[in-house]
Design a binder for these strands. Structure first.
Lengths: 170, 170
DNA sequence: TTGGAATGTCAACAACGCTGACATAAACTA
DNA sequence: TAGTTTATGTCAGCGTTGTTGACATTCCAA
């Protein structure tokens, strides 16, 4: 079923000749690459009994210091209960500080402590090293294509979050 | 720490000017894209109380019918206990068939049943549709770069598995 | 002042990683 | 042939991280 070509028609807007086999290669490439992508941080996290959820929280708090819990929820796409459990451990371990909002005291603004920043740096250094090596192997043009396809693969709300971060970053 | 440039030197082998900010964008793109990449299958799987582990097993059994448990283990990179739990449910639900090996009767060779193939098709159709749309949005040159960077991001053993599958697949 | 938004907490559950221990059958080896 | 290793399965237990549901608190806003 659904063998062979399954891309756009000939007279159409695309020059791509997309067989199911080619698409499947892309799917498998995503799977294997994501394994590699997370393996270095995973090793570090396992040593201190943390998981990927801790890494993600630390990453985005570092990315946007003072972000609210609700904002973080929409970026991570998990439930508040799930995030709350992770934040509680990070706060009690002294890696994250939670400050009550000034204009709206219901909100909690999140910051990394010095210790939190140290872990963030340790984690992102390994991940950047892998990304840098991959970029170098693949070359500059490949990197453009890489980002283009990834952005097109995101859900609409995730793409919005991604682009917000890109604008606010740097 | 580690601010600004952190790429290759000037006189070096690379023309890439890689700031930490650019690398972080790539990292975040991977995270958001992988969310989208898994979201369609996740919805289908949730309806039948399955998870990603079931999907992965089904995918690779379909990819290489008759594969052994050990071979599947090395592809998936999990423990036999973890895979065994998933396989047991798939077998008892009638989606996977396990046949004792002929030359080596210790081995179990895995196959999808008709029902298993139906679920595989349902899952991969949604994922291929997203991949096809992303490829179309990004364009043909982008797809080459996408695959090139992903391959460079894999661990060595995963890259070997990936290329084995590429060779054996059509 | 009442309703709703933001947050936190408690409880329970499921998926899916992990380790350790043990059983079995087949295959290799000395 | 006897002993070891390999491949697989099973059971038990644990930890992370996702989920829902229920409920309390605080505070803004109509």
């Amino acid at each position: 079923m659904a063998e062979g070509r399954s891309g756009q028609g000939f007279g159409g807007e695309s020059l791509l000749f997309l067989t199911d086999e080619q698409l499947r290669q892309g799917i498998e490439a995503m799977f294997f690459a994501y394994s590699g992508f997370t393996s270095d941080p995973d090793r570090i996290l396992a040593e201190i009994s943390y998981g990927r959820a801790h890494h993600r929280a630390i990453h985005f708090i570092n990315r946007a210091p003072g972000t609210t819990v609700n904002n973080l929820l929409s970026i991570l796409g998990v439930t508040k209960q799930s995030l709350n459990r992770v934040l509680r451990t990070l706060i009690s371990d002294g890696l994250v500080e939670s400050r009550v909002g000034i204009s709206d005291k219901r909100e909690r603004h999140l910051f990394l402590t010095t210790e939190g920043k140290a872990l963030e740096a340790k984690l992102s250094n390994t991940q950047r090293a892998r990304m840098r090596a991959a970029y170098k192997d693949a070359g500059p043009e490949a990197v453009q294509g890489f980002k283009k396809v990834l952005e097109a693969m995101m859900d609409a709300d995730m793409r919005r979050a991604y682009n917000n971060l890109r604008e606010n970053g740097q």
